[in-house]
Computed example of a mutant assay.
Amino acid sequence: MSDFKSWMQGVQARMEDTLSAVLPRADHLPARLHEAMRYAVLDGGKRVRPLLAFAAGELTAASPERLAYAGAAVELIHAYSLVHDDMPAMDNDVLRRGKPTVHVAFDEATALLAGDALQTAAFDVLSHHALADQPATQLKMVGILARASGSLGMCGGQGVDLYSVGQTLTLPELELMHILKTGALIRAAVLLGAHCGEPLSDEELARVDHFAKCMGLAFQVVDDILDEEADTATLGKTAGKDAANNKPTYVALLGLKGARDKAAELQLDARAALAPFGARAERLLDLADYIVARSH
């Protein structure tokens, strides 16, 4: 585990440098917008999605440089989604990653523009750098991130979430919402990382995608548990928000024990999917354990 911790810290440090490099300088016109973009992305966050990209890259012997750019593209999409989710028209939150949300630190109009600009910056990164041996593979990677980000992925899941406030969803309905809202971008991170290296067979890609699907759901189940159990200082965001807003969650549907059992079941399913890869999947398996055991 100490080896995993060192690996994780190394990837996180590399991602901080890469994200800082791909974002416009804070003094570049329009300075306030660029300052808000950097505020939203840098100096915070666990970088789970880039970590997943790097770990998946170990399955295909991908270069760290390619993985850093692929991870940056996914993280920029994630950051933009947080900026918009926190705004008054959405979740109306004032705290993110232990500091005021972007619309509080700047203003609503700047936050809206910062989110828009971070979204397009992700595709600039993904298309500007050579991330695959074949152009067709890189074009596929752009499509993977686009699909995962839009109405058939993350944005669609957020829409279902908004329209489900006050409703009681069945377990399949709740899972579908989170396959889109949280899971789509996590799956994209894993697939982008894998595509940065040597080609996998269709069967191998299906196994990798199944792992990512399971972990995307597990990540959300754990989020729901932490929203119920952890405090605001630990989370770095407002605790108890989902219950206060009467949102459907795994805890509300299954109870705390049921939610924990669900996370453990998904973790086992994810690990089983990667069994044929052997030692090449070590980092992905470490991340599966980290995601389920995390405290924030």
Results as ranks from 00 to 15, higher is better:
57 G>L: 03
167 Q>A: 09
22 V>G: 06
68 A>Q: 00
67 L>D: 05
122 A>G: 04
132 A>K: 05
25 R>M: 05
286 D>E: 08
175 E>Y: 02
10 G>Q: 09
129 H>N: 10
44 G>C: 06
160 V>L: 14
201 S>N: 11
110 T>Q: 06
172 P>Q: 02
113 L>V: 12
171 L>Y: 10
95 L>M: 14
77 I>A: 04
267 Q>V: 00
278 G>A: 08
222 V>D: 01
45 G>E: 02
248 P>F: 04
72 A>Q: 02
190 V>F: 05
240 G>D: 01
172 P>L: 06
218 A>Q: 08
259 A>P: 00
213 K>E: 15
115 G>D: 11
252 A>E: 03
93 D>K: 03
183 G>F: 01
83 V>Q: 03
126 L>M: 09
244 A>G: 10
220 Q>E: 13
39 Y>E: 10
267 Q>K: 11
155 C>L: 09
256 L>I: 13
110 T>L: 15
229 E>I: 12
133 D>R: 10
229 E>Q: 12
167 Q>C: 15
61 A>E: 13
38 R>V: 04
185 L>H: 01
271 R>H: 08
186 I>R: 03
207 R>S: 02
22 V>K: 05
31 A>M: 09
221 V>F: 07
138 Q>S: 08
277 F>T: 00
188 A>Y: 00
50 P>D: 09
273 A>M: 08
218 A>M: 02
75 E>I: 10
102 V>Y: 04
191 L>P: 00
287 L>N: 05
